[in-house]
Design a protein around this nucleic acid. Structure first.
Lengths: 220, 220
DNA sequence: TGTACATCAGTGAACGCGCGTTCACTGATGTAC
DNA sequence: TGTACATCAGTGAACGCGCGTTCACTGATGTAC
């Protein structure tokens, strides 16, 4: 359904956001709607995201989105999926800088999770919020969400091999790690940290350091 | 506005939830609306909570809530405040069992935070969700939210005195502790943990143990 | 290169709905005498 | 103990609104010839 479609004809002039469309066909409405959805969540919270508002923001009639998304849920699922893909990409990018050392790689993974939440709060909200009620209705969303977790598990496994993380079920240990970084992220996104948000990176360093102390090999 | 009001006249027969009201006056509509709101969030998520639905559930006309709450936000703020009070009470109860040992007390605090989230997910959602946009509009809500954090800071201070937590700004350390337990809680509430939720208490133990390893006195 | 045509992305009007909130009201309650 | 009355919690109808979604349509695009 229009997914990934590319026009082969002449490329019409750019339509910068905000300018009124001057063409009947939009060009890449699907992408524009995803962007609009994100902006709405950022500005007014998840309940500020409506299909009509997204259409308005994309400069298109209110019925147009239905050419690209079956219904509102489908748009939300697409936003969430995009978020998971972007986050996984950021995490992989972060680990690549520490190819040699598993523990540093693992740590980079955790930090980039927090940083993604901080720099993409709207994505993060939709990814973990209750808006997409049943993720299993959207297989490719479930898939990308699982991929993120798999990155953690894999990193743990490598640390275990290198002896820098204790024995134990990697999935369990990953869950521990996950909830630690997720907590900091959730507090950041929900703006619970007030003035404290300034030294966010300090905080992230401290939180993940504690995590690693806890996960490290047991003292003899 | 009806806050804490107690009738001095005859106590009319109970009105169990679900039974149609047989009296013109409800008796304690404010409390009934808070309960109804909670049940709606539990059943259908935060966006399922509407003033009209809450009134319906309490068996009352749609205009009745306005006798007790200025608007919808005010109802949400009241739910959140109730949640913070209940949580603080649960945390204090949990620490009382370990009066002698600061570190055990601190640990009990963290565990009871997670347990509260697990057993009161609807409350937790409203307390930390974006529904109450600006907490500062509701001073008594801000107050109760602050009280929870203060419990953590105080526990940290006592641990530091006893030498079981390292030196450092207690507020910073408390933020670390908070985000750790909050992360686990948020994942539980958002049902991200799937099958893993079964061994929640195990997980909570593990997560908090890691936290304490991290907060403990630095090895010499 | 030019034209007819199938495709389908976008239009605009309309639908039914449930929402938050307001309003003039009614009926139960507690109290002053 | 009995009664008049002020208070105010709850009623029910109504408002305007924005929403999700559907529908018959229109106009731009790419392609087959």
């Amino acid at each position: 359904m229009g997914k990934g479609r590319r026009r082969s004809g002449r490329q019409p002039g750019r339509t910068p956001a905000g300018r009124r469309r001057d063409r009947y066909h939009h060009g890449d409405l699907r992408r524009a709607l995803l962007q609009a959805a994100l902006e709405l969540v950022q500005r007014e919270g998840p309940q500020g995201l409506t299909l009509r508002a997204a259409a308005r923001l994309a400069g298109v009639s209110q019925a147009a989105p239905y050419r690209h998304f079956a219904d509102k849920q489908a748009l939300l699922a697409a936003v969430a999926e995009e978020g998971f893909r972007d986050m996984a990409a950021a995490m992989q990018r972060a680990t690549r800088a520490h190819a040699a050392e598993p523990l540093l790689r693992f740590r980079a993974l955790g930090l980039s999770y927090v940083r993604f939440a901080q720099s993409h709060p709207a994505h993060f909200r939709v990814m973990f919020g209750p808006e997409v009620a049943d993720r299993s209705l959207y297989p490719s969303l479930s898939e990308s969400a699982g991929e993120t977790f798999r990155l953690l598990v894999q990193a743990i496994r490598e640390c275990q091999k290198a002896g820098s993380v204790r024995e134990g079920d990697p999935e369990d240990l990953a869950t521990t790690a996950w909830s630690t970084v997720h907590g900091l992220s959730a507090l950041l996104v929900d703006a619970q940290l007030g003035g404290k948000a300034k030294q966010v990176d300090d905080l992230a360093q401290r939180v993940t350091q504690n995590l690693f102390l806890g996960l490290g090999p047991r003292p003899a």
